[in-house]
């Protein structure tokens, strides 16, 4: 078996190609995934998310729980799990679900049994950030878990206005990823495939029903 030293030695022994130097991020040209000058973050996030077939709700903090409950009732979800990054809304959401006759389990308690996790109807998560210009939420293994945001057919993500960053540059230059744990993920709308004759199908392995709740600043 090849070991690290001999593997790298073989690569090191190759001649070295032309190095143009690593470009300086400050001169980086704008990509489609950057915010345009003067653009409103929440508005762009909403537009991009909707373009990717996400249902967007813009609410105040006090309406979060009711919105979550309404979506879950409409989706007829029974087996529901919440992830801990939903804080500070967890208690509120659980209480409101109870009124609707629903129970929101804690994902960390469901996840150890893959079968149970795989049988969930809906998950409700928070996120560590949202990227306006790409219409993405950013989840972490430490928060929503690796699969918490895509294991069930319905996914609701709650993002607070101050969590929204403009574009990918801001995301990667910021420090929100530092505490993400063993994985972070950008997730942008429902799971999709167009493999069969280019017909777009939503909800392949991940959720087909995706909601983004943007919480206005206080």
């Amino acid at each position: 078996m090849t070991d690290r030293a001999s593997f790298l030695a073989a690569i090191r022994s190759a001649p070295r190609g032309l190095d143009p130097g690593l470009p300086d991020r400050r001169d980086a040209p704008d990509a489609p995934t950057q915010l345009r000058v003067g653009e409103d973050r929440a508005a762009r996030l909403q537009a991009e998310a909707e373009a990717a077939s996400t249902v967007v709700h813009r609410v105040t903090a006090s309406d979060v729980a009711a919105t979550v409950a309404r979506v879950l009732v409409e989706a007829n979800s029974q087996r529901i799990a919440l992830t801990t990054d939903l804080a500070p809304f967890v208690d509120d959401v659980q209480a409101t679900l109870a009124v609707a006759g629903l129970t929101g389990a804690i994902y960390a308690e469901v996840a150890p049994n893959r079968a149970h996790a795989g049988a969930l109807d809906a998950t409700v998560t928070g996120c560590i950030a949202a990227v306006a210009a790409s219409g993405s939420i950013v989840t972490s293994a430490a928060g929503a878990g690796r699969a918490g945001a895509l294991i069930a057919p319905t996914h609701i993500c709650v993002v607070r206005d101050e969590q929204i960053v403009g574009g990918l540059h801001e995301l990667f230059d910021g420090d929100v990823l530092a505490e993400a744990g063993s994985l972070f993920a950008l997730q942008s709308g429902p799971s999709r495939s167009a493999d069969i004759e280019k017909v777009l199908i939503l909800g392949v392995h991940g959720p087909g029903n995706v909601h983004l709740i943007i919480v206005a600043p206080d």
């Binding site: 489609p32 991009e48 996790a117 293994a141 690796r146 744990g181 994985l183 950008l186 942008s188 991940g206």
Partner: peptide
């Protein structure tokens, strides 16, 4: 993603470093 499928971004971009850590619910 723009050159692959023409999307703004691929639906799932997952960035993993190492196995599940203490306190993480799955992985």
């Amino acid at each position: 993603t723009g050159h692959g499928t023409g999307q703004q971004i691929t639906t799932y971009v997952s960035v993993a470093a190492g196995p599940r850590r203490q306190g993480e619910p799955d992985g």
